[in-house]
Write a protein that binds this DNA or RNA. Sequence first.
DNA 1: GCGAGTTTGTGTACTCAGTCCATAATCATT
DNA 2: AATGATTATGGACTGAGTACACAAACTCGC
Lengths: 220, 220
Amino acid sequence: MTDFGDAGTDGADGGPSRPGRGGGRPRASSRRTLEDAASELFLEQGYAQTTIEHITQRAGVGRNTFFNYFSAKSDLLWLDVDETLSALPSILDDAPVGLPPSEALAQVLGDLAARHPHRSVPIALSQREPMATHDEFLSAGLGRFLRVAHELAGFLAARAPGVDDGLVRAAANAATAAAATGAGTWALAGVERGDLSAEVLRAVAPVCRGFAPVLDPAGP
Amino acid sequence: MTDFGDAGTDGADGGPSRPGRGGGRPRASSRRTLEDAASELFLEQGYAQTTIEHITQRAGVGRNTFFNYFSAKSDLLWLDVDETLSALPSILDDAPVGLPPSEALAQVLGDLAARHPHRSVPIALSQREPMATHDEFLSAGLGRFLRVAHELAGFLAARAPGVDDGLVRAAANAATAAAATGAGTWALAGVERGDLSAEVLRAVAPVCRGFAPVLDPAGP
DNA sequence: GCGAGTTTGTGTACTCAGTCCATAATCATT
DNA sequence: AATGATTATGGACTGAGTACACAAACTCGC
């Protein structure tokens, strides 16, 4: 359950707090090493069969070091997703102010999807069959879902003042659910998947259309 | 992670499989006892501080008996919710066939909410502050969300043949998210909350309106 | 160089959820 | 009774996550 705000757009760091960089023992370049070891092991034997000890052994570090870089095993399932999601705040800032809220909502989610690296399907989904609907997968997924929805709700509340708070949150949650659905169908579409952004927009558009009369100030 | 199909509309049983009832050691009426013990303890000391051993000790049964009735500690957070959700299949069956799919979707969710006992706020939400966004809460919540959404998607797919499967799932997921949002605001609305069904419909209606042009056969 | 402060790595020990398995208890049926 | 089915229970185990103390490695000021 990392904060997904620390994934960094460049792959430089992440992991323990490194505020001013004032000295101290240097990292053993462990985070990337751990990610790679975990990816290998998940491919070889599956997520459930891979223990944290396995991962740290292959990475050549102690077991506790794992928790210096990740707060849960399930974080490993969403590595690329977290990096993409970390861009959400800046995308929200960049959204043009002239746009009606319902359209801005769709555009923001489309832009976020466009930022995702092509062909990068999260391990969570490649490991979906063996783990079915098991707890870690679900917990980690909903945690991310709620964070996105919460940020969107704040965005909408600022752009659509005066609108009932319950409806704002309903719009944010429904849009997030639709976006996640679109991303899911894209990820599971096999080798020749199309554009992630297009798929997300296709799923989100009806939701935004439906909430337009509620969110937007005055219809045309 | 019980199947939430076994909660039974009458409070009779639930727990281990009891297909034909052909004899065998009778239950020590433990399920209800466990529920009560857990509720007391959660109120007294909070969810996180209450271990399964505490619950079973107060209930006067062995620790393993707990897992005869619940598959996870987090099941205790959603007791009434599970009972309400178990009515979904029959509600789906009873939905009038003449209705356009988008309207049937809204009606089904409203009917489901209407079935929920008044004033019954799930423990999950009363324990929300102390446990914040902790894993068990999230995992259990998303599991239930996905089951509802999956059933709705099947319902919609049958009622709206020919519609793209991705859009059907997007509609089901978005509607479920909106419904859950409505239920959440209702539950957190304090002492004088209004009608759950009305709150759910208010949140779901825009989603269904938005998906109407996609789902319904031929607009007027 | 040398110590002070800081950050990361790591070993030990612990709690607790959840699983597995063997066995005892209690019923209905024959 | 003997049998079969079902539930209760105890013991042993795995593995995630936490807490804590301490060692290792670096920077900076002196």
